[in-house]
Write a protein that binds this DNA or RNA. Structure first.
Length: 279
DNA sequence: CGATCTACCTGATGGC
DNA sequence: TGCCATCAGGTAGATC
């Protein structure tokens, strides 16, 4: 579900809502969402009594810094949601797996029907070295600004299809199935163009489309598809889906040339593009 | 190195 | 109404 823009929206909401709050108690309904821990007790023990001091993002990972040098790492997977509850008595949504209650009142709830998401606590200074998935993350396009020339060198040094290159978390951190298609439409490039075949002009277009698409998506608070599985911390869906150019628009008119948007299955996933204006 | 498949899960939807 | 297939924002690991 959530890609870089959605995770960034949740990060900003968390910064506003949980920084400065102290954890009073933690409830987990099983081990699935906290599978890296030995026990629920051990997970809760590392959180209880700690104040949350900051919220960062690395690609699709959220890092909630804790007083004392630990960090709560959160990945939302395909269907994970973080939702704030003002009190403790609000109805518990189905598939709520972790509930963090604050001493100041209110809760942070982790809801995840498909359970591909997870949370775990580790030490902040080792998280980017010893947690494999984070250690191998590539450049985060919004966090680590890079020039288009630098981007171009990286792109040209690989030999991969553009869509899989954009989605490779070891290369760029945060881009998934929706935004890779939207970026490639913005750049006027096909998903299966090879990364080492681009002209300087095409590299510049790709870089520009990547930055603009991600920034716009954050501005519109992310994309929620028909099932509205993605919502922000306050339970509100995003609005960027209304600005999608190709994703989930099969058969609809391309916003540039009016030809129907095509859907193709690539490696088991849907890819949307315009056959006329992406070359 | 890159591409492709499977597995991990639940739920919504559409055809018959 | 039920049953079955297909689809859904992610990632890791095996295999070629």
């Amino acid at each position: 579900m959530p890609e870089l823009p959605e995770v960034e929206v949740v990060r900003r909401d968390l910064e506003r809502e949980v920084v400065g709050k102290r954890v009073k108690s933690v409830e987990a309904d099983g081990m699935r969402s906290i599978r890296r821990h030995h026990s629920r007790k051990q997970f809760a023990g590392r959180l209880e009594g700690k104040k949350m001091t900051g919220v960062e993002r690395r690609g699709k990972y959220i890092l909630v810094k804790l007083e004392g040098g630990d960090v709560l790492v959160i990945h939302l997977g395909m269907s994970g949601q973080l939702v704030r509850s003002k009190g403790t008595r609000e109805q518990m949504a189905k598939h709520t797996h972790v509930v963090i209650t604050f001493t100041q009142g209110g809760q942070l709830r982790f809801i995840d029907p498909r359970t591909f998401g997870e949370m775990f606590v580790t030490e902040l200074d080792i998280v980017e070295k010893e947690v494999n998935e984070l250690a191998h993350l590539g450049i985060d396009p919004l966090e680590n600004a890079m020039s288009w020339e630098e981007f171009g060198r990286l792109v040209a040094s690989r030999h991969a299809k553009l869509k899989s290159m954009l989605m490779d978390q070891k290369f760029l951190a945060g881009i998934g199935n929706i935004y890779s298609d939207e970026i490639l439409w913005g750049a006027g490039l096909r998903w299966d163009r090879m990364s080492d075949s681009l002209s300087p002009e095409e590299i510049r277009r790709l870089y520009r489309a990547m930055m603009e698409t991600l920034q716009e998506a954050v501005k519109y608070r992310g994309s929620s598809l028909a099932d509205e599985q993605y919502v922000d911390l306050y339970g509100k869906p995003g609005e960027f889906q209304e600005h999608h150019k190709v994703y989930a628009r099969e058969g609809e008119a391309c916003r540039r040339c009016r030809r129907p948007v095509v859907r193709q299955r690539v490696g088991g996933r849907s890819t949307f593009f315009c056959e006329a204006c992406q070359v």
